[in-house]
């Protein structure tokens, strides 16, 4: 072995396969992000509802799908749901019958549970006085939600959202256990063919790193655009890398999530 643990020729050869893996990882990120978010809204409303049973039900959902390790969720959906007769006969078997469908379901449920809390945190942070002012203007509850509460909640919750998306992307690495050839699976199979423990894994790691940091960059830009009304704070913050959001700086500490 030479000084560098990476076999450059192998790395070059593996690039196309790794890119294919990255594509799968990207799809397994994008779809659950959309589905999970769509699911998070109604569950968040239920969680914040005055009806106790509804709130408790939503809380149970969040506790389970947030508290259970993703790997177990994936096993549960992949191996566990097939046990249920009605599901095997039903029309949704197209979804639950394929590893890809199972991965999407497990990842979406997990992401939804996290997003319920992100959304709730953002919505609860909206100052009550501003909501009252909108009510006093005669704006309907629905419009207040769309035009006042949500835009502000996004600003307050952006940092938490970014953390969740980043850790979610990294979390997708486990889907290879249900035979999906994502980025990690591609690296593993190259390792199994070549017994080079460094090159494929380090290359995959570099891909993940780049993917994650592009997302971070995107969030940074989004945050800056959203916070243009606080231009001063953003300028001051720009000097502190990794601390984007100007709103709620004090709570950053509690929000550093892997």
């Amino acid at each position: 072995m030479n000084g560098l643990p990476i076999d450059l020729a192998l790395a070059w050869e593996s690039l196309p396969a790794l890119f294919d893996g990255l594509k799968v990882t990207a799809i397994l990120t994008a779809l659950p992000l959309l589905l999970g978010l769509a699911l998070a809204f109604p569950i968040c409303f239920a969680r914040m509802s005055d009806r106790r049973w509804l709130a408790l039900l939503a809380e149970a959902f969040v506790t389970f799908f947030r508290g259970a390790p993703l790997l177990i969720l994936l096993y549960l959906v992949y191996y566990g749901l097939g046990q249920i007769e009605a599901l095997r006969e039903g029309p949704f078997w197209i979804l639950f019958g394929s590893p890809f469908g199972c991965a999407i379901v497990a990842l979406s449920l997990n992401h939804a549970a996290y997003m319920v809390e992100v959304l709730r945190g953002g919505l609860l942070a909206v100052p009550h006085g501003i909501v009252e002012a909108s009510e006093a203007l005669g704006i309907t509850r629905r419009n207040i939600f769309i035009w006042v509460k949500m835009p502000l909640a996004i600003r307050y919750g952006l940092k938490a959202y970014q953390n969740e998306v980043v850790s979610f992307i990294k979390g997708t690495a486990i889907v290879s256990v249900v035979t999906i050839t994502d980025l990690t699976a591609v690296a593993n199979s190259i390792f199994e063919q070549t017994y080079d423990p460094f090159t494929p894994i380090l290359c995959a790691a570099a891909f993940y790193w780049a993917f994650v940091n592009i997302i971070r960059l995107g969030f940074g830009l989004w945050g800056r655009w959203l916070n243009r009304h606080n231009a001063e704070d953003v300028a001051a913050d720009a000097g502190v890398p990794g601390r984007g959001a100007a709103l709620r700086r004090t709570s950053d500490l509690g929000q550093v999530t892997p």
Partner: peptide
Amino acid sequence: HFNLFPHL
């Protein structure tokens, strides 16, 4: 406390 919409 005015309660203006800070994002507008």
